[in-house]
Every structure is written in structure tokens, then in C-alpha cells.
Computed example of a mutant assay.
Amino acid sequence: MTTRRKKIYEGKAKILYEGPEPGTLIQYFKDDTSAFNETKKAVLEGKGVINNRISEYFMTRLNSIGVQNHFIKRLNLREQLIREVEIIPLQVVCRNVAAGSLSQRLGLPEGQALPRSIIEFYLKDDKLSDPMVTEEHITAFNWASTQEIDDMMALTLRINDFLNGAFGAVGISLIDFKVEFGRLWEGDYARVMLADEISPDSCRLWDAQTNEKMDKDRFRRDLGDVIENYTEVARRLGVMKEMPTVIQGGLH
């Protein structure tokens, strides 16, 4: 089926196809995994299935508390129907605990709680390795308006509160996460809404008891058991019921 559809865009972890109706797209989750600007790559069998399910879980619940997003419904194991939005070319990162590039840049020990949640913006550009940018850059180069920046920051903090609660309730610490936003055009007016995905690919997640990493850092740092940990995140969230067995002999 996917071969006959018109492909709109292919990214590192997902493919977008033309949707069944105007203003819709089909988002397909791949098993491809990459890190360090695609210098490290692998195919992790079942990853796309898990991320599709976890992202559906969070997008549905965020919608229900008024955080509008592009998700309409999950179609099958790997695909969801989404609204077509004009992606704002920024990655919005929300950090609760020092880790990753923040630790490296500022010399903070990994795992140190931050005085408050910190939001950072990065330009979506693989060739430039997604450089960090300021609000001054964003408005000067017209990547987003001041109002859109305010909207993205407010939405990101609401998402952070919600995710913190959801993960905390199942014994997972939300260290940081990345989200993307898009403009949904209605005539001449555009509304900012959450797009892309929320999954262990886009969140740093540690076991609350052991600080064991349960996210893409397992792939980045060669820690192994990537799919096992993604599956454990899904199991704790209670989204495994309709999922096939991903481990133990692949997909069934």
C-alpha cells in the first residue's frame, strides 16, 4: 500500500505520505535509528511500532487537556493519520535535569536537577548539526514571530507538566525532551500546534529508582537493549495491550 501512495517527505525516523483527504497526511514510523547527525545508524526491529503507539498515547491525552496537536488517529501498527501543518523550522527542547549537550556546554554533572525547567531553541538543519539559536535569531530570520515563540514556550511548559506527571506516575524521570510545532492555516490565520512525535526517540527517560537510561541514549552510547527499554516504557504506560510481541523473535 505504501508504495502506491505519494511520498511527501522522508526523515530519519518517519515518512509522510499524502493523506486520504485534503489537509491530512499519513505518518509512517520507521525502524531506522540514527545519532550524531546520521554518522551512526542502525535498524532496530519494532522501534517504529512502539513509537507509533507511545506517540498516539501522549498526543491523544494532550488533545484532551487542550494542547492541540496534529494527531487524528492511529491507522495501524506503524501509521497514523495527522493534520497537515507547516512545520516551524525549530526544535524546542525542554530540560528538567542536566544531561547531554547541556552538561557538556556548561560543565554540569549529568543528573543535576536544574533550578527550573529551561527551554532552548535549535534550528532544524542537519547540514549545520541543528545549531542552538536565540529568540533574537528566530525573529531576525523570520523563522517564527514573537507571538509564535510565546505560544511554543507556553505549550512546551504545559507539555512538560503533563509528561512529568505521566512518566512520574510509572516510575520514570523525564530528564528532557524535544518537540516540534507547526502552523495550521485557517484562511489567513495560522494556529501553532504540536507536531512530530513524543516517544523515547525524542525524550530522555531514566528509571526513577536506578537512573537506568530508557531512551535513545542507549543507542547513542552503545548501552544495548534499546528495544527492550522502549518496550518497558510502553509497558509501564499501559500501551502494550494492543501491541504485538516486539521482542522475542521480532514482530508477530
Rank of each mutant, 00 (worst) to 15 (best):
I82H: 11
S103F: 03
L106C: 05
P109I: 03
R78A: 02
I88W: 05
E86C: 02
P115I: 10
L75K: 10
Y122F: 15
R83Y: 12
V85N: 06
R83L: 15
P89R: 06
E86T: 08
L90C: 08
I88Y: 09
S103D: 01
C94W: 00
L123D: 00
N76L: 04
V92A: 07
D125S: 10
I118N: 07
L114W: 10
P89Y: 10
P109T: 07
I82A: 15
I82Q: 12
S117T: 11
D125K: 09
I82N: 12
S117D: 06
S117G: 08
V92G: 06
I119F: 12
R116I: 10
N96V: 00
E86V: 06
R95P: 00
Q80W: 07
V85M: 09
L81C: 11
Q112I: 14
G100Q: 05
L114P: 08
V85S: 10
I88C: 08
S117P: 11
I119D: 07
I119E: 05
I82S: 13
R83N: 11
R105D: 02
S101F: 01
Q80I: 03
V85A: 15
E79T: 14
V92K: 08
S103W: 00
G107T: 04
V97L: 00
R78L: 12
I118L: 15
S103N: 03
L77P: 00
L81K: 13
Q104Y: 04
R116L: 14
S101M: 01
G111Q: 05
V93T: 06
G100E: 02
V97D: 00
V85F: 11
Q112R: 15
P89L: 10
R105N: 00
L123V: 02
K124F: 01
V93Q: 01
P115K: 13
R83W: 06
L114C: 11
G107I: 04
E120P: 04
L75Q: 07
F121S: 07
Y122C: 07
Q112V: 14
L106E: 04
L123K: 11
S101E: 02
Q112Y: 11
R116T: 13
I87P: 09
I118T: 13
V85I: 11
L77F: 12
L77A: 14
L81I: 13
L108Q: 06
S101T: 05
N96F: 01
P89D: 04
G111R: 08
Q104H: 09
Q104A: 14
L102E: 01
P89N: 07
E84K: 15
N76F: 10
A98G: 04
L106I: 00
N96R: 03
K124I: 03
S101Q: 02
I118M: 14
L90Y: 10
E120H: 09
N76S: 12
V85Y: 04
G100M: 02
L123T: 01
C94S: 12
I118C: 07
L102Y: 10
I88P: 05
R116Q: 15
Q112L: 15
E86S: 11
I119M: 12
F121K: 05
E79H: 13
R78M: 03
G111T: 04
